[in-house]
Design a protein around this nucleic acid. Structure first.
Lengths: 184, 184
DNA sequence: TATTTATGTCACAATAATGTGACATATTTC
DNA sequence: GAAATATGTCACATTATTGTGACATAAATA
């Protein structure tokens, strides 16, 4: 498997739990030496940048696929949740990273364009569902977005805990999520 | 206000976001010098330990109060959620810390006794509600516990976002939570 | 006011983390 | 098997972080 990707994967996992974790921690997780890690990523910031790119790419692809797979916004929402879960820690870390603007490179360049597009998809979806009366108008869009993100997080933790049947865990997540936002 | 407490508060907030954050970051948040911080806490581990104590104490007090305020387990659950929200970042960080056993001091001494008691209250509550048929037996206890924790997290983020009316935010949290675990 | 108490500033040593060069050893590719 | 490529090991300089002592200054208190 691609070494570079292996490093990014490990970095995403480690940094998601502890953003200031030393690079040794990441190298250790990949079973590579720190020296090798530095061969792929000259310094810490470049590694983080690579993570950001990777996360955005993965998420964008997943969300577009979810949107294009059907016209029904309800099913779109469901598949977006599954997409988030499939992206796993990537999804979590991405949103954590983007919500801490101080971490981002201070370049005014909006490299996020395609991500923004994906995000817009999301934001349009909820009001659409509200118009159709499927989600209560009472529930704030911000609130729903937070619930969504955290539901992905919960699901990942549940996977890791091993205390829950892996088969129906996604369905369970969808059940809890849609009810939490007032559906059905 | 108590300086020591001010430091612990800042530490909990900062370390919750970034566990390996340098002490300067915490000192900065308190508007104290790092030197002063070191006068109260000789080293990093002692500060973290103080945080742990503080968090356990706060949470234990809150949860006991919630339990003793009524006999109705349903209302107990609701008040426990409010208690978690009131504890704020404390609650989040406490559970994050306790779920990473490597971080804890390797002393086999169970200083957590009283906390454990508080935790047991929690764990007895859900099965009780399931017995009474108020929560579906289908939903796993682990899953509920994760949802609970994340709901506290969501609420705190919602507070911070400023996009949601502060008044009814707790009720909203309770609404989303109880529905997510299959109630009503 | 004199004295304690809390805090700040600065300098400093000790340790930890980062990033790089030089060279050895696998591993792959041709 | 030889060349190219990837990785490991070690040494090293640099920087960041940590923790402490010495002294100054501000604030509270007697």
């Amino acid at each position: 498997m691609d070494t570079r990707q292996k490093i990014v994967d490990a970095a995403i996992t480690v940094l998601n739990e502890d953003f200031s974790a030393p690079l040794d921690r990441i190298a250790e997780k990949t079973d590579l030496s720190r020296r090798t890690l530095h061969r792929y990523f000259p310094d810490r910031t470049e590694l983080i940048e690579a993570c950001r790119q990777d996360m955005m790419q993965t998420w964008q692809t997943a969300i577009l696929q979810a949107c294009n797979s059907t016209q029904d916004p309800l099913i779109q929402l469901e598949r977006m949740l599954y997409a988030g879960i499939d992206c796993g820690v990537r999804y979590i870390f991405l949103h954590k990273l983007l919500s801490q603007p101080d971490v981002n490179k201070p370049t005014g360049v909006p490299q996020n364009a395609s991500y923004e597009a994906a995000r817009d998809n999301w934001f349009q979806l909820v009001p659409e569902l509200q118009r159709r009366g499927l989600i209560s108008e009472q529930v704030n869009v911000t609130w729903i977005r937070l619930l969504f993100t955290q539901m992905v997080s919960v699901t990942i933790q549940a996977y890791q805990s091993g205390n829950i049947a892996q088969n129906d865990i996604k369905k369970l997540a969808w059940y809890s999520f849609r009810r939490s936002i007032g559906m059905e």
